[in-house]
Design a protein around this nucleic acid. Structure first.
Lengths: 236, 236
DNA sequence: TAAAATAACTTGTAATTACATGTATAAAGT
DNA sequence: ACTTTATACATGTAATTACAAGTTATTTTA
């Protein structure tokens, strides 16, 4: 009677969808753990496993004696917590300009994150973009994807499309998480030109490793942000 | 026979300390779950609860059929995702110096986050700290807490203690989440002096609002980071 | 009426058991 | 010698049971 998807994962997906779709609103109480047991015919450890996942991503909050309180969907989601810049800002004010169309090349050495041999051998799809908020350049990002099972990737149109969206729609790749390093640095000549700031201006630099639902497939971004007008915002 | 600290938490602390201190090196296998059960006289669910926490912060990796592989500690500073700086680094390398002992004062106007009237009327506990990693100043932080039900807060010793720890141990206040803004800015004279960098150096500036388990109680930090040596690190 | 005790919830911790499934090593077969 | 098989051991999933402890609403008591 068991197939591939574990019960706690199924319940997690159900609750997550319900929260995102608004079945449960922010501040609502989820059904109690015992209620969920009864509803789904599973036991409390399993229910708790599912709730732990939601708790972990901040979708819910828990109070002993009270219940599980709906908190997220991780809110508008600043660049820091999840997703790309598009979902962080809403599409309205954000425009994307491609500075260098995707090309297949070698991985830079040394790279900002450790690479597997598979990645090194397969080569790297490289892509530079400039993203503008209200027509002012704010993000300058360099993207590095492994050249693995991404047919015709380089031929696609990227203008005003989220990289994340393309990966999801065209390749069924969803970003599930990642890690990042953040530094304050100085704008060099290149960055200063693109972001239209004086050379030497303090710039936020993010180095991100994005994990996906495709096992072993992850990719990288190096993002320079002009934070004079817009700070990065995130919840945790 | 058991008092306040749960077993899984104790095992988590033990393993975490052992990994940070080098008892287990990167790539090593931890003892198997059953071994840990026998060693500490607890059962597998409890052991797994502890390992889950380590897995979650990226200290270990797990392979079914193989074991738990030591991965961390993460080499940035995990201030972004959760908790304070202390838990992000491990206590060993982090020292704290109090620059201005906690005093009760007025909230600055305008403040970096919106304030309720209750907060404004109750006044503000203000505290400045300098935090050093391997004796090099890295964080300069200004902390603002509402003067609400924190008896004798100003008399406490803060040297080498996490603010989060004090709130937890002395007042049963746990930080459950928060929001933050991040900018790259320039070191002014004060910041340059404290962080021991040239004036004008790019500095990371975090403004954080920390939510707690005590309803209606939240507090604020404004943190300046020298990210030349250490980047901020976070997972999502 | 108002305060205090109680009951009926909630989540937190934890031991126990069972089986599924991936990994590695040693024994058996070719 | 090499491949295959079997075995032991690792983690993954999940049901069951028990009690501790915080929250809330009700009932009792002063």
């Amino acid at each position: 009677m068991k197939q591939s998807i574990p019960q706690y994962r199924k319940l997690y997906e159900v609750l997550r969808t319900q929260i995102i779709s608004g079945t449960y609103k922010i501040g609502d109480l989820l059904p109690s753990e015992n209620d969920l047991c009864a509803q789904y015919g599973i036991t409390r450890p399993t229910v708790r496993h599912a709730l732990d996942s939601l708790l972990h991503e901040g979708m819910i909050r828990k109070h002993r004696g009270k219940g599980s309180i709906v908190q997220g969907p991780p809110n508008g989601i600043g660049i820091l917590s999840i997703s790309g810049t598009t979902s962080a800002l809403g599409k309205h004010n954000l425009r994307t300009r491609i500075l260098s169309k995707p090309v297949i090349t070698q991985w830079p050495e040394p790279f900002i994150f450790p690479l597997t041999d598979t990645f090194r051998q397969s080569g790297c799809i490289y892509l530079e973009r400039l993203r503008l908020v209200n027509d002012i350049p704010v993000f300058y990002d360099l993207n590095f994807l492994p050249n693995l099972n991404l047919p015709r990737f380089c031929n696609r149109k990227f203008e005003d499309q989220s990289l994340f969206d393309i990966l999801r729609k065209a390749f069924q790749i969803e970003v599930t998480g990642g890690e990042q390093r953040i530094r304050a640095t100085r704008a060099d000549e290149t960055i200063a030109t693109f972001l239209n700031v004086p050379s030497g201006q303090p710039i936020l630099h993010l180095q991100r490793k994005l994990m996906t639902n495709r096992p072993g497939f992850y990719f990288f971004s190096s993002i320079y942000c002009n934070t004079v007008e817009h700070a990065l915002y995130g919840t945790f």
